[in-house]
Design a protein around this nucleic acid. Structure first.
Lengths: 246, 246
DNA sequence: CTTGACATTGACGTTGCGTCAAGCTCTACC
DNA sequence: GGTAGAGCTTGACGCAACGTCAATGTCAAG
C-alpha cells in the first residue's frame, strides 16, 4: 500500500515540489520508484514526513532535522539549542519593535525628520549643564556655535567616528587589552583627537582629559555609550594613562 | 572632501561589499567615480547611508528602504506596515517557543518519543469515557485493541486521512456548499468510511452516525477539529442528512 | 486514439550580501 | 624606477527552502 506524490502531499498538507526537494537532498526518499520514474511513498515514509514537518514547524533547518532523525537521542539537545536561538531572536524582535514604535511616534510628533534620528540619542544640547559647569559657559557656547555650523552630513560623519571609537574600545576590552597598552592608547589618541575637533581650539590639557574620563564613569548616560560601568572605567583608565604621558 | 569605499565602510560600520551591492541595485550610488573605477563618497552620501542602515536595523527590506528614501512622507506608513509584520512575527515566535518548550519537557519526561507527538493532540485514550458511555465498554475495548495493533505509520496514515476530511469539510463550508449537497455528502461518505475502519466490524448504523455528529457539536474538543462551533454544526448536519439517506 | 490530469527532470528566481578569483592601481620603500 | 603590499575593480558562485515556469513523458478514461 503506497501513495503517489500528490496524494502524500495533500495528506501531509505540503506540496509535491517540497517532496521532490526532500528527495533531492536525501531527507526523505520515496519508498519505491517506478520504472517510469514516479515516486511512491509507503506508511513508514509518511511517518518520517510527519516528523520532518513537525520539526520544521518548530523552526529547525533541514540539515538539523536530518541529524535529529538519524540520532533520536539528540532531539532534546537539538531542540534546546534551537530554543536558545529562538529566545535570542525573540529579544531582538522585541527591541526592534520598540525602536520602530519610538521612531513612529517621533515622526508623528514631527520632532525629527529621520535625519536627526541618526544621532543615536546623542543629543548635543542634552549635556549643556555638565559642559557649562565643568568648563564654563563660554566653552559651551563656542562648542555649540561650531556644532551649528555643521551640515547634517558633517554631524553624521562626526558621530560615526565616535561610534567607531566606542566599538574599538569595546573590542579592546573584550580582547583583554590593558588600558595602558598600545592598542588602547592608540584608540585613546583618536578619542582625544576627536574631542579636540569639537573643542575647536580650546586647549586640550591633560587635566581636561582626566576629568572627561572620570565623567564617563560618573554619568551613566555617557557610560552607556561605552558598554556599561566596566567599559566606562576602562576608557577612563586609558585616558588617564594617556594624560599622564602627554 | 570625500572618502574611499573602505573608509566609508568602517565609518558606517558596514562592509565594502555591502556598499558595492547598494551601488549595484541603485540604492546608494557613490558621489564620484574615479577614472580608475574607484568609488568615492561625500558627506551627503554618508548621510544617505546612515539612513539606509537605520531603516535596515528596523528590519525594512532594501526595496522598501529605497521607496522611503524617495518619498519622505511615506516613512511613517511604511514603518506602520512593517510594525504589523513584526508583531505577527513576534506572536509566531512566541507560539513556536511555547511549542518547543512543551516538546522538550515531554521528551524529558520520556512521555512521547516524537512519534506520538504527530497525532496533533488527538489522543485516542482521551475519549475513553465518551466512547464507553455512549457505546459501551466492549465497543471501546475493541477499538482500543485495534488501535494498539497498528504501527506508528499506520496510525499516522489513519490520522492523516481524518485531517484531509477535516480540510475538505472546511473548504466545502467556506465555498458555501450546502450540508445536503453532493460535495458535502461525498466527504461525509469518506468520513463514515473512516469511522467504520476504527469501529472494526461493529455495525455503523444511521443512529450511530447521527449521535456522533451531535457529539461533535456538544464536545468542544471534537468541535475544535472542525473549525469551531460553525464547522462542527456543518459536519453534524451533513452527517444527519447522510444518516437519513442510508 | 485523443484528451486531460499527473508525473518527470532541469533551471532560474528569491534576499542580502559573503567569499573567492583574477587582475588593475596606489603608496611606500629601497 | 622597480617591487612589494594594500586596496580597488568586476564577475560569479553560494546560501535556505522551496516557487515557478518549461519541455516532455505517462496514465486512466472515453
Amino acid at each position: 500500500m503506497d501513495w503517489s506524490i500528490q496524494q502524500v502531499a495533500s495528506l501531509a498538507g505540503t506540496t509535491s515540489r517540497t517532496l521532490r526537494h526532500y528527495a533531492d537532498i536525501g531527507l526523505l526518499k520515496p519508498s519505491r520508484v517506478g520504472s517510469n520514474g514516479y515516486r511512491y511513498y509507503d506508511a513508514a515514509a509518511l511517518t518520517r514526513l510527519q516528523r520532518i514537518l513537525l520539526l520544521r514547524e518548530l523552526g529547525l533547518g533541514l540539515p538539523a532535522i536530518a541529524e535529529v532523525l538519524e540520532r533520536e537521542t539528540s532531539a532534546p539537545t537539538a531542540l534546546a539549542t534551537h530554543l536558545q536561538l529562538l529566545r535570542e531572536e525573540q529579544q531582538r524582535l522585541d527591541r526592534q519593535i520598540a525602536a520602530v514604535e519610538k521612531t513612529i511616534t517621533k515622526l508623528n510628533e514631527g520632532e525629527a525628520l529621520m535625519a536627526d534620528e541618526m544621532f543615536d540619542g546623542f543629543d548635543h544640547t542634552q549635556y549643556k549643564e555638565e559642559v557649562s559647569q565643568r568648563w564654563g559657559a563660554e566653552a559651551y557656547a563656542s562648542g555649540d556655535r561650531w556644532w551649528k555650523t555643521l551640515t547634517d552630513a558633517d554631524r553624521a560623519a562626526f558621530m560615526q567616528q565616535q561610534k567607531q571609537i566606542q566599538a574599538d574600545y569595546a573590542a579592546a576590552l573584550a580582547a583583554g587589552e590593558p588600558a595602558d597598552g598600545d592598542v588602547a592608547q592608540e584608540i585613546t589618541a583618536r578619542q582625544v583627537e576627536w574631542i579636540a575637533i569639537g573643542w575647536q581650539g580650546r586647549p586640550v590639557t591633560a587635566e581636561a582629559i582626566r576629568g572627561l574620563g572620570q565623567m564617563y564613569v560618573d554619568d551613566p548616560r555617557f557610560g552607556a555609550n561605552y558598554g556599561g560601568p566596566d567599559g566606562a572605567a576602562y576608557v577612563r583608565d586609558a585616558m588617564a594613562v594617556y594624560a599622564d604621558r602627554m
